[in-house]
Design a protein around this nucleic acid. Structure first.
Length: 716
DNA sequence: GGCACTCGAATTTAA
DNA sequence: TTTAAATTCGAG
């Protein structure tokens, strides 16, 4: 489904620069992304990425392949999806040759089969989704027709398409008056959202809707109450009045007091948002109240969320359930959804935020992307050659297995650093090629440094600017701005809000440790530097980057409950030293230790822990007789209290189009006229144009701000 | 036997 | 040391 979501747009997440906390990217005037559907879609936007499609395992992949792997993967997936659908459709065509010969999917603009059409216009432009849908529409007719026949052979299922006007009116009234609406998407192959997930989700052809007026669970399984109605509604591109009503009913939040239940509601919302892109905006979806049994199941037991609907039933539904014929089975399944509703105990979180986010499209500055791509490609090629030279052999730089062989079997670097402890891999206890390991080795041989630099380009994308020294004929220093390559909608601005060191702030807030709190009184300072100076007892100027890194690692280790062995592996020091660091930290911040102990104690007593938003995590193993199992549960308890609320915070702030969420950073697209107002909502400090922190918090929600202008490529 | 695809294990990184 | 995601690579 992710591939489906992204198949029409080159869309890429960027990780934040730790220094840039809120940045605003103004819409560059020279770019005019096509907004109206009348405009011609931009052509060939992604075609030059074709070369990036390469089979895995190629010994010496082209550098385009290595670049910006996010985009490559998405396009790759898009092509795969098309080809697979193509073969699937052809398969279906063989089943009914008469009709299907006309249905071979053609790429409309160039009249070629999808599989042979190399031009990517199918995958670009605002109309792409509907085009894709329309292309397979004849198929929808034939298959859905047969499906409808099998559904409507059950007299209880009404086909909305075959109702006479009076019945339609009746149905509409039912939809409005129903106390509960339960629904599921029906796919072209006759499966529904309740069936186990398939490798490739087939196109949606309609909805099966149960309008229930007796929302009790005492009905015999599979039977409808006298006032209940079951309707099959075909998904059509032009919203008919009935559909409009239903979707309004379902999505518009018209009757908020009434309940809509849908298993995997996010997929439904996303499908509807994409299908009715022109008629519906995310804002209309924002108010809907959908209960999602999948989410409820996860909330009830986050450790072991049921993988499919059947799992969920087996786990939470005590009744034995029958397996009747197809039509009846659908009824039974829908009714079972109601059973789940009856035993529900948690309020569903806002699926719509995620579905709106997943349906959103971001335009990319194709030229800038290509330039950057070439630039990074050149640099990486150089590094690759350097690495091969340093190693004395050709190997794949991205393969840790191959790198391990070169570093430790060929060069035997580990034998030359007996005084240092090199990290081992968690599983097999092999020599690690992680960053920590390479840092230890970098003075012994040129190769580790080259790999580190290479990984910075290939793996780490958490930079906003980077200087490249191209050692070609001339040396050249270039600055790259990955964020400048993404274009907001016209009249809009990207606004990125990044919580600064949320975990540490939350730890300070929860433990009320005076020393830790003191660190946050100075909003300008770097917390980890201050932390290092505080617990190592040196002045801030004396703190080296190594000290700072140690401080950072220790914070996380303490939060997650690492032992000294693990910590020594992370820091690259002896376990005695690691143990001393840890003791020192806990002595400096005594209330932190007290908080951790209190949390563990309470989890033992109650069997669960709560996040600040009141979300509960049950810990079945917290009183296990097995020491290892119990300790793991204790670590999970502390971890959930501190970490489990980042997600909660993300759910709290949503007044505008949330475009992406990455860990503790939220990216919004905001209308220019509302930027200031919105920034004020995200960050009260910005709204007041003052840096005074709100005094009712220990700053756990402080967000630093930075404006980034893509015009001048600079920060303010 | 070659080739494409899928899956799971192992490794690495981020927060 | 937790959770989540991305990637390689061998096996089917």
């Amino acid at each position: 489904s992710a591939a489906e979501t992204r198949k029409h747009e080159a869309f890429q997440h960027q990780t934040p620069n730790p220094a840039a906390k809120i940045s605003l990217t103004r819409h560059p005037p020279k770019w005019e992304p096509p907004r109206s559907s009348q405009q011609k879609p931009r052509e060939g936007r992604v075609s030059e990425w074709k070369s990036a499609r390469e089979p895995r395992g190629t010994a010496s992949p082209s550098h385009e392949t290595r670049l910006l792997s996010g985009a490559r993967i998405e396009l790759d997936a898009s092509k795969q999806t098309q080809q697979n659908w193509q073969s699937k459709i052809e398969e279906l065509s063989r089943e009914s040759p008469g009709k299907a010969s006309k249905n071979t999917p053609f790429c409309k603009p160039c009249k070629l089969k999808w599989a042979t059409c190399e031009t990517k216009h199918v995958t670009s432009g605002p109309k792409s989704f509907s085009e894709a849908v329309n292309t397979s529409e004849p198929l929808t007719h034939s298959r859905a027709g047969c499906l409808t026949a099998s559904l409507t052979s059950d007299s209880r299922v009404k086909d909305a398409g075959k109702l006479n006007p009076d019945e339609k009116v009746q149905m509409f009234e039912m939809a409005v008056q129903a106390k509960v609406v339960v629904l599921t998407m029906v796919y072209q192959d006759g499966s529904t959202q309740l069936d186990p997930e398939q490798k490739l989700t087939p196109p949606v052809c309609g909805l099966l809707i149960l309008m229930k007026n007796e929302p009790n669970c005492s009905m015999p399984e599979g039977s409808l109450g006298p006032n209940d109605t079951l309707v099959y509604l075909k998904l059509e591109h032009t919203p008919a009045w009935a559909q409009q009503q239903v979707y309004q009913r379902v999505l518009g939040g018209v009757c908020i007091s009434q309940l809509v239940v849908c298993y995997k509601a996010k997929d439904l919302l996303r499908t509807v948002l994409q299908f009715y892109r022109r008629d519906l905006s995310w804002k209309q979806v924002a108010g809907c109240h959908i209960q999602d049994p999948q989410v409820s199941g996860w909330l009830l037991d986050p450790t072991d969320p049921s993988s499919c609907y059947q799992d969920l039933l087996n786990k939470h539904c005590k009744r034995p359930h029958l397996t009747p014929a197809l039509g009846a089975q659908k009824v039974s399944l829908s009714v079972n959804l109601l059973i789940i509703y009856c035993i529900r105990s948690c309020e569903s979180i806002n699926n719509f935020i995620v579905s709106a986010m997943e349906s959103h499209r971001i335009h990319v500055d194709k030229e800038a992307l290509r330039r950057t791509s070439d630039l990074l490609g050149t640099k990486m090629k150089q590094l690759e050659q350097e690495a091969h030279r340093a190693a004395g052999q050709i190997f794949l730089l991205t393969s840790n297995t191959q790198l391990r062989t070169v570093l430790f079997e060929k060069l035997r670097l580990h034998e030359r650093c007996e005084n240092k402890k090199l990290p081992k891999t968690t599983g097999k206890q092999q020599q690690s090629t992680s960053e920590a390991a390479l840092l230890q080795l970098q003075d012994l041989h040129p190769l580790p440094k080259i790999i580190l630099e290479y990984r910075q380009l290939a793996v780490n994308d958490d930079f906003l600017s980077l200087c490249l020294v191209l050692t070609g004929k001339e040396e050249e220093v270039v600055t790259v701005h990955p964020r400048a390559m993404f274009i907001p909608q016209e009249g809009c601005t990207f606004l990125a809000a990044d919580f600064c060191q949320v975990e540490l702030r939350l730890l300070a807030h929860l433990s009320s440790d005076p020393e830790l709190l003191r660190i946050f009184t100075n909003p300008q300072a770097d917390v980890f530097t201050m932390l290092a100076s505080q617990w190592k007892g040196m002045s801030e100027n004396e703190v080296t980057s190594e000290d700072r890194e140690h401080a950072k690692r220790i914070v996380y280790s303490v939060i997650y409950g690492a032992g000294r062995e693990r910590l020594s592996g992370i820091l690259g020091v002896s376990s005695e030293q690691a143990s001393r660091f840890q003791d020192r930290f806990l002595q400096t911040y005594r209330d932190v230790q007290a908080f951790i102990q209190k949390t563990i104690q309470q989890s033992h007593k109650k069997g669960y822990v709560l996040s600040i938003m009141g979300r509960r995590r049950t810990l079945p193993n917290i009183n296990s007789p097995d020491w290892g199992v119990r300790m793991q549960a204790e670590r999970q308890a502390v971890n959930f209290v501190v970490q489990g609320r980042k997600t909660d915070s993300a759910q709290c702030i949503c007044f505008s189009q949330l475009v992406a969420q990455l860990h503790d950073e939220l990216l919004y697209e905001v209308e220019d006229s509302q930027v200031q107002q919105f920034a004020g909502k995200v960050h009260p400090v910005l709204g007041k144009n003052s840096y005074t922190a709100p005094h009712n918090f220990y700053q756990p929600l402080t967000i630093k701000i930075q404006f980034f202008s893509s015009k001048t490529s600079s920060f303010t």
